[in-house]
Amino acid sequence: MTATAPATPSAAAAPPADSAPAARGIRRPWTEHGLTFTAPFLLMYALFLLWPVVLGLKMSLGDDNITGSGGEFVGFDNYAEALTDPGMWDALWNTVWFTVLSTVPLVLCGLVFALLAHGLRFVDWLWRLSWFAPFLLPSGIVGLLWLWIIYPAEFGFADQLLATFGLEPGIGWLSDERYAMLSIVGTTVWWTVGFNFLLYLAALQSIPQHLYEAAELDGATAWQRLRHVTLPMLRRTTLVVVVLQLLASLKVFDQIYIMTQGGPDDATRPILLYVYQEGFTGYRIGYASAVSYIFFALIVLVSLVQLRLARRSREENSR
C-alpha cells in the first residue's frame, strides 16, 4: 500500500492569472492622479486666464487697434514708447502715492478696530457690523455716496457740516489737486477697512487665553500685554494684511473712475485708468497692453520683495 504525500500550501489551487486584474480593479494614470476631477477647472483656467495672458502679450508687440485695423508686428516699440511717456510715469506715480497713503491707515485702523471690538462686552455685534458693513457695498454705491458727501458748494454734506461749525465751506474736495487724492484715500479707507478688521479680529480670537493669564500673573499691564503678547501673535496676520493691501491699492480703479475720472489735471489718474483711456478712448490696444505688462512686472516685483521679507522674518523668529 502506497502512501500519498499530504497536500502542501504551495500545491493549493491558485486563482487564474487573468482574474487578478478583475479582483484589484483596473488602475489608469488618468484616474489615479485625479485629472478627471481637475480637468474642468484646468480647462476654464487655460481658457479665461492663460489664453488672455498670451493673447495680451501678442497684442503688446503689435499696433492693434480697437477698430480692428492695424495688427502689424512692431516688436518692443510699444514698450519703448511707454517707458518714455511722461503720462505713463505720472499715472504710475499716482498709483504708488495712493498705495502709500492708503495702506498705512487701512492696516492701522483695521488693527485698532479689531482690538476695540474684541475687548467690548456689550452689543459687540453692532460694532462689528458697523465696521464691516461698508465693505459689502459695491463700488458704484460707494462712489455716489461720497460724491454726495463731499460735493462742493451748498449741496455737500461735508460743506454743510463745516458751515455749521462756523468754518469756511466751498473746499474743492475733488476739484483741488491738494485735496483730491486725500478725498479718494478717505473714501477707500472707509470702504475697505472692514476686510482688514475681519482678518485681525479672527486672529485675535485665535490667541490662547492662557498667554494673557500668565502675563497678568507676572504683573504685566494692559499695554505690556498688548506689546509683548498680542502684537507678536499678530505678526503673521499683519504680514498677510500688508501684502493683500499693497496689491489691492496698486490695482485701484473703480472709485477714482466714478468720483474724479482721474482729475483734476490727471492728479488722481492711476495706471489702470491710464490703460483704460489709452486702450478704449485712444483706441490703442497694443500700446495699452504694453503698459499693462509693465505694470504687471511691477506687481510681481512687489510680491517677490514681500515674500523675501516674510521669509527672512520667519528665519529670524525661528532662531
Rank of each mutant, 00 (worst) to 15 (best):
R225H: 08
L174T: 13
P169F: 11
K251Q: 13
D176T: 02
E216T: 10
L246V: 13
T221R: 11
I141K: 08
G263R: 06
I141F: 06
R236L: 01
V242I: 10
W190I: 05
Y179P: 00
V243A: 15
H228G: 02
A248Y: 01
A215E: 09
N196G: 10
Q261I: 00
W148S: 15
F253S: 09
D266A: 13
A220H: 08
E177N: 06
D159Q: 15
A158V: 02
L199W: 01
V243E: 11
E177A: 12
Y200A: 02
L145N: 13
G263M: 05
P270K: 13
L147K: 14
A180L: 03
R235G: 07
G143A: 09
E154Q: 12
A267V: 00
R227F: 03
L167H: 14
L211E: 11
L246I: 12
L234A: 05
T221K: 09
L174Q: 08
I256T: 08
L246G: 15
T188G: 06
F165C: 07
L231P: 01
F253Q: 10
F155R: 12
L201D: 02
L273V: 03
A215S: 14
D266M: 05
V241A: 06
S249C: 11
Q255H: 09
L211K: 07
L234P: 01
P270F: 08
G170N: 08
F253L: 12
A202T: 05
I256A: 10
I150P: 00
E168Q: 15
R236Y: 00
Y151E: 14
W191C: 03
L174G: 08
I141C: 06
L247T: 05
L144V: 10
G156I: 00
G170R: 07
T164E: 10
L147E: 15
D254I: 01
Q255L: 10
G172E: 06
L250R: 07
V240P: 00
G263F: 01
D265E: 07
G262F: 01
D159L: 00
Y151C: 06
T237D: 04
L144S: 14
G166Y: 04
V185G: 05
W191D: 02
A203L: 03
L247E: 06
A153Y: 08
E168A: 15
R227S: 12
Y257A: 15
G143L: 03
I149G: 06
L162V: 04
F195K: 02
V185Q: 07
D265S: 11
G156R: 04
E168Y: 06
S175V: 00
L250F: 12
L204V: 01
L211M: 10
G262M: 03
L272R: 07
A153M: 05
Q261G: 07
P264K: 11
V243N: 13
A248P: 00
L199I: 02
L144R: 14
R178S: 09
M181W: 02
P208S: 14
Y179N: 11
P208F: 09
R235C: 00
P152C: 09
